[in-house]
């Protein structure tokens, strides 16, 4: 694994290498170099299999993290390529030309996180949510609880008590 990372380093800039376990590492790369590195890994280093592409919302840093998890089926090792992109007008170069399933992932990311992948086939078509008008729901600032409270109604007649509060009320209300 280390030699692969060393080889990437001769050509590209990578930061923050984390060896999670013997056969799984994560590297952080820049948005500009990401697709090039991934192509390099696929074509030269044998990471022919894309396990998944997903995002995580680091709202406190105003960043989205994109993770391209690549797998080398011969060496049986995984490499997670992390790319941090700005949350504002989030956009990333498309990788649909590298694997056929990427277009689906990118369509989902557009819908769920609002990350745009220009030129990705069908990226603007709704994937799971039809007629969704709220903010992309997998963003951290989308409050699922609030949404369900606004959208659905609770069953009447339910009321609970906090044991400590209730005991105060019953045993020492004036203290």
């Amino acid at each position: 694994m280390k030699d692969i990372i060393d080889r990437i380093k001769t050509k590209y800039t990578i930061s923050e290498v984390v060896e999670q376990r013997k056969n799984l590492s994560f590297v952080t790369v820049s948005k500009e170099q990401a697709i090039s590195i991934i192509t390099f890994l696929r074509d030269i280093e044998g990471f022919k299999h894309l396990v998944l592409l997903t995002a995580a919302d680091w709202i406190e840093n105003d960043k989205f993290q994109l993770t391209y998890l690549l797998n080398n089926p011969t060496e049986k090792i995984d490499l997670g390529v992390r790319v941090f992109i700005s949350r504002e007008n989030a956009s990333m170069e498309s990788a649909h030309h590298l694997w056929e399933q990427v277009a689906t992932y990118q369509r989902e990311l557009k819908e769920m996180f609002g990350i745009d992948f220009p030129d990705s086939p069908g990226v603007d078509k709704p994937f799971i949510l039809e007629g969704w008008e709220d903010i992309p729901p997998y963003r951290r600032d989308f409050d699922t609880k609030q949404y369900s409270e606004d959208t659905y109604f609770p069953r009447p007649g339910r009321e609970s008590n906090d044991p400590a509060e209730y005991m105060k009320k019953k045993l020492y209300p004036n203290e």
Binding site: Q20, V51, L52, G80
Partner: peptide
């Protein structure tokens, strides 16, 4: 803090959880 990917062979192929 950290992230990992855990996989298993299900009847349809590779099942996995990516956890951050």
């Amino acid at each position: 803090k950290g992230e990992t990917y855990s996989r298993a062979e299900c009847t349809r192929g590779e099942y996995g959880y990516y956890m951050v």
